[in-house]
Design a protein around this nucleic acid. Structure first.
Lengths: 221, 221
DNA sequence: ATGTCAATAAATATCGATATTTTGGAGAAA
DNA sequence: TTTCTCCAAAATATCGATATTTATTGACAT
């Protein structure tokens, strides 16, 4: 059989492997927004059959990274300022809810996971963008991690990913990391450790809105 | 070819047809929560091939009505009080955002669609539960309809559907329609027509929380 | 030149069959 | 009895081929 391996060497199904790879290609822009996604091309690109590819595309449809046109195949979801603005607004609404719920039920284990995630993100600061991305997302998700709300976490994770695309789109401008991102993260982190829900959410939303303004401006070029 | 027809007689792909039917069976409880969904059974039940069934199940996975267990197939998503509470909380957060956005950009067309939807729901009051369900959802979605936020609408629609399951689960208790649902709807409707966002959202959330309390209580039996 | 229509090419959606994995149970060993 | 291992049965995941639909091309009439 065609065994597919993830980056860490674990086996996965062809479907899951295709899902991860196609998703990555869309997020990074390797598959540009709006582009037709032909089964045959992806099939040969990923060295797999048509069924896993179709199934992966179906899954990506729910993540809103791929659009399905009935009887006319699939395409990478288009991007635009309106879409970006909606993502930002939804993230603010949902992450505020999630962060408050998270802090409300915070315990020692939650706190330790958060400390770890923050540390790893700092360590990854200098390394390549891929490494940083991963730890950055892990930190933000650790903030929102509450045992009670799996669906909310899923929505936040989806929206985080949708947002990544726009960072790649704006990547040719001055790096967004030149801002005081590090300080902003630490302030959110400390407010969360203090269980100060108001301060933590205020800083988190400010963090998103600043990044949002910057990216939105880049989109004009 | 196996042409599949929707209720109104239009053709659809086998995949889309399977999607609709499986979704319905899960929502109504015909396929009980937690039940293993075997490809072969569904395939013969729906008179179609394995590929459309698999693809439909993949799509339902994103709607959180089906869970995929890697290499171990699919099952109908489980239900529970915690899940129900999360759905309620997310609906309140998202629909408030949506309704405010909707009212903020209200125009004549939006208003007319809302009037129509409300009228149809009233007309369907006496008819069977399926008819009422459809118009009821249409009314609630018309409230939230703004041109600017397609993703938000989609989330609200998904959550609405997830909630339907719990209504069916509680259906053996006294009908939830015995309450003053009709009056509650009219109050929301009128506030929306008046462009009174505060009143409309307050009434809408109250409406959900009341229904939520009722259903949550039914779940204990 | 331009628009329509049929024929062709390309791509999608679906099927049937096969390879792979998981499950359940019988029998052996502790 | 309990636990473990191995084998058969069942179910999933995947492939390769085919039927169906959509897109394209070019001839022909306007």
């Amino acid at each position: 059989m065609n065994v597919m391996l993830t980056t860490d060497g674990r086996e996965t199904s062809a479907t899951h492997g295709s899902y991860i790879k196609i998703r990555d290609m869309i997020l990074t822009g390797e598959l540009p927004a709006g582009q037709k996604l032909k089964i045959e091309e992806l099939r040969s690109l990923l060295n797999t059959g048509a069924s896993p590819v179709r199934e992966a595309l179906s899954l990506l449809t729910s993540d809103m990274l791929v659009e399905r046109m009935d009887q006319r195949g699939f395409r990478a979801a288009p991007v635009g300022k309106a879409n970006f603005a909606e993502i930002l607004l939804l993230r603010c609404a949902l992450e505020e809810t999630a962060l408050r719920a998270s802090i409300a039920q915070a315990d020692a284990s939650w706190e330790e996971q958060l400390v770890l995630a923050h540390h790893r993100m700092q360590r990854a600061q200098g390394r390549d963008i891929q490494d940083f991305e991963q730890t950055h997302k892990a930190f933000h998700m650790a903030l929102l991690k509450s045992h009670a709300m799996p669906m909310l976490e899923r929505y936040c994770s989806q929206l985080y990913d949708l947002n990544i695309r726009y960072r790649y789109l704006a990547a040719d401008g001055p790096s967004y990391r030149e801002r005081s991102i590090e300080a902003e993260h630490r302030e959110i982190f400390e407010a969360a450790l203090d269980r100060d829900a108001d301060a933590a959410t205020a800083r988190l939303l400010e963090h998103y809105r600043r990044t949002g303004d910057y990216l939105s401006q880049q989109l004009d070029h």
